[in-house]
Design a protein around this nucleic acid. Sequence first.
DNA 1: GTACTGTTGCCTTTTACCTGCAACAATCGT
DNA 2: ACGATTGTTGCAGGTAAAAGGCAACAGTAC
Lengths: 121, 121
Amino acid sequence: MNAFGEKIRELRKAKGFSLRTLAPMVGVGYSYLSKVENGKLDFGDSPSEALIHRLADTLDGDEDELLLMAGRIPESISRRILDQPEVFRALANCDDETLKSVANTVQKDLTGRGERPRRSH
Amino acid sequence: MNAFGEKIRELRKAKGFSLRTLAPMVGVGYSYLSKVENGKLDFGDSPSEALIHRLADTLDGDEDELLLMAGRIPESISRRILDQPEVFRALANCDDETLKSVANTVQKDLTGRGERPRRSH
DNA sequence: GTACTGTTGCCTTTTACCTGCAACAATCGT
DNA sequence: ACGATTGTTGCAGGTAAAAGGCAACAGTAC
């Protein structure tokens, strides 16, 4: 469990950083970072959105993916929801079948506008 | 502006409550309620999710509608997003055309209005 | 006037998110 | 084998923003 922490660790290792090296880069203490990776935070099980942002930046991770792993809704998504609430209320309540068919409808349409994924991984 | 506060006021008036009557019913001070309705909170422009919940309850309002008006994502929606992130990431980035067609696909699946469908996962 | 109503400025509490050390075990290069 | 580096964990806080409380005020209506 705790996919988020494991993902962070994976990204960090990929860069060859130690906890004590990375910590000041993202502006936190190394002990806190360790707890983040192991899901042992005093409260909750994910750090602030701001820290996730800096981690994604520093480690070249996909910010939205990380946010979702941390149980948070990325702004790119929430913006769209607040803009078109009815659609998403329907999507929240429809059955899995319907949602799946929606997935297929939309899947190849990533040529659109707005935020494009900023990096590949 | 501040559709949320106006909606609360509308619901409250509909019930014939004064600020001082409603306040203890939802567990806050009357002065705070006034600020909520007028969008004059010290910070932000909407109260906590917990308070919105109690307001919806007491005033027989649609909780999710109120949450969305307050710029917050209802749990019914965020639960679905965290469960099926890829679909919603696609939906966040697709063009309005596509989203509209999605709306039509899903539209008629609202037969369970009040009760949220409990699905296993 | 007095009995309500709503408004506003300033104050306190609570919570989320960390800090920072200290002490420890494990691993590793030399 | 030794010190250096790495990660883990407990604890004892700190801080800034979020959330809300209190009391004095002003309008209206009886």
